[in-house]
């Protein structure tokens, strides 16, 4: 059977040994999200110092794509400024795992790949509204999160 464009070594490895898997007690940002049709379900926890993301963890259940993408996302955003993360695009995440093709080839599985990014954007949105009172930035984030898939 030919090499699989989805189930690469990297995806399998991440799904079996996810990065930053666990929980943060009383995090600054917490967001739960799920894909009701396939049953992926994750909780994303983020701690922030000023404008900088200092700690990220996630837990939950999901398919290999969801677990791998969430792992990579947590690795990518740790230590970054909220401003940078706010502008994070879906291609930034998908290309990291070689999954850019999913946008065209698999409208179903793209939801697995982008669930964590959606949770992150919504999480930061709430943070902007509740903690930083930056309604304009928040509004844009919410729009982006809603249009991810």
């Amino acid at each position: 059977m030919s090499a699989d464009p989805i189930y690469t070594e990297m995806i399998i490895e991440y799904s079996r040994n996810p990065s930053n898997f666990g929980k943060i007690e009383n995090p600054h940002i917490h967001r739960h999200d799920s894909n009701p049709l396939c049953g992926d379900s994750i909780d994303l926890y983020v701690n922030v110092d000023g404008n900088k993301i200092t700690e990220v963890k996630f837990d939950g259940k999901g398919c290999a794509i969801c677990m791998a993408c969430t792992s990579v996302l947590t690795e990518m955003i740790k230590g970054k400024n909220l401003e940078e993360v706010k502008n994070f695009k879906k291609d930034d995440l998908l290309s990291e795992l070689g999954l850019g093709h999913l946008i065209k080839t698999s409208p179903v599985r793209i939801k697995c790949a982008l669930l964590s990014l959606k949770a992150l954007k919504y999480g930061i949105y709430s943070y902007f509204v509740d903690k930083m009172n930056d309604v304009e930035a928040a509004g844009k984030l919410k729009e982006e999160a809603a249009s991810l898939y």
């Binding site: 699989d4 989805i6 189930y7 396939c38 049953g39 992926d40 398919c63 290999a64 599985r109």
Partner: peptide, 22 residues
């Protein structure tokens, strides 16, 4: 511990249509 959607996606590549989900 392999998610059913991963199983269904892999077998679908071979033209095999099974259902995964609840």
């Amino acid at each position: 511990d392999v998610h059913p959607h991963d199983v269904a996606t892999i077998v679908d590549k071979n033209g095999v249509a099974i259902r995964s989900g609840h």
